[in-house]
Amino acid sequence: MTIAPSKLSDPTVAAFVTAVNAHDRDAFLKLLTPDATMSDDGSDRDLQEWIDKEIFDSGGHMDVQKESAGGRHLVVNYRNDTWGEMRTAWHFEVADGGRISRFETGQA
């Protein structure tokens, strides 16, 4: 069963999922702190390069299956035009002011 972004517990994470699914790069970037970082499968990656390749240039889409930790940990069926669909885990660190300072993703 998919959880609609509007039903997610953390409003910043909900906005992140909404921006990804709408392919709205500007809205996505506004959710991040200026020094935000990310990792994929345990390796830190260049944020701008990764989001272009894995989300915006490849039609990324998140179908949230489960949430925990107040909505900051998600299990997602993630798909894009490069890799197809895969079950992934996402963890978010949300700074004061409601912006994401770090997110981590990888196979679930």
Rank of each mutant, 00 (worst) to 15 (best):
4 A>V: 00
96 D>C: 03
59 G>N: 09
103 F>N: 03
43 S>I: 00
1 M>D: 12
76 V>M: 03
74 L>T: 04
46 D>W: 08
13 V>G: 00
41 D>A: 11
20 V>L: 10
71 G>P: 04
91 H>V: 10
65 Q>C: 01
99 R>D: 00
2 T>G: 02
14 A>M: 10
86 M>H: 10
35 D>F: 01
107 Q>F: 15
11 P>H: 07
27 A>H: 10
94 V>K: 06
81 D>H: 08
68 S>V: 00
100 I>L: 09
13 V>Y: 03
8 L>H: 03
108 A>S: 15
57 D>P: 02
68 S>T: 00
11 P>E: 08
100 I>S: 03
51 I>T: 14
14 A>N: 07
11 P>F: 06
34 P>Y: 06
99 R>N: 10
35 D>L: 05
101 S>D: 15
61 H>K: 14
103 F>T: 03
28 F>M: 12
13 V>P: 04
98 G>C: 06
31 L>W: 04
87 R>A: 12
89 A>C: 10
24 D>T: 03
40 D>F: 15
49 E>N: 15
2 T>Y: 08
80 N>I: 06
49 E>R: 11
101 S>Y: 12
82 T>W: 00
105 T>G: 07
102 R>P: 02
90 W>M: 05
26 D>V: 15
32 L>A: 09
90 W>T: 00
34 P>G: 06
33 T>W: 08
30 K>Y: 05
86 M>S: 13
16 F>Y: 12
61 H>N: 08
28 F>P: 08
57 D>G: 00
52 D>V: 09
45 R>M: 15
25 R>E: 15
45 R>V: 12
1 M>P: 09
1 M>L: 11
27 A>R: 12
76 V>Q: 02
47 L>R: 04
68 S>R: 10
79 R>S: 14
108 A>R: 05
4 A>N: 14
51 I>M: 11
67 E>G: 06
87 R>E: 12
96 D>E: 14
44 D>A: 13
68 S>C: 08
78 Y>R: 01
45 R>T: 09
30 K>P: 05
50 W>T: 09
72 R>L: 06
86 M>V: 10
29 L>K: 13
29 L>A: 14
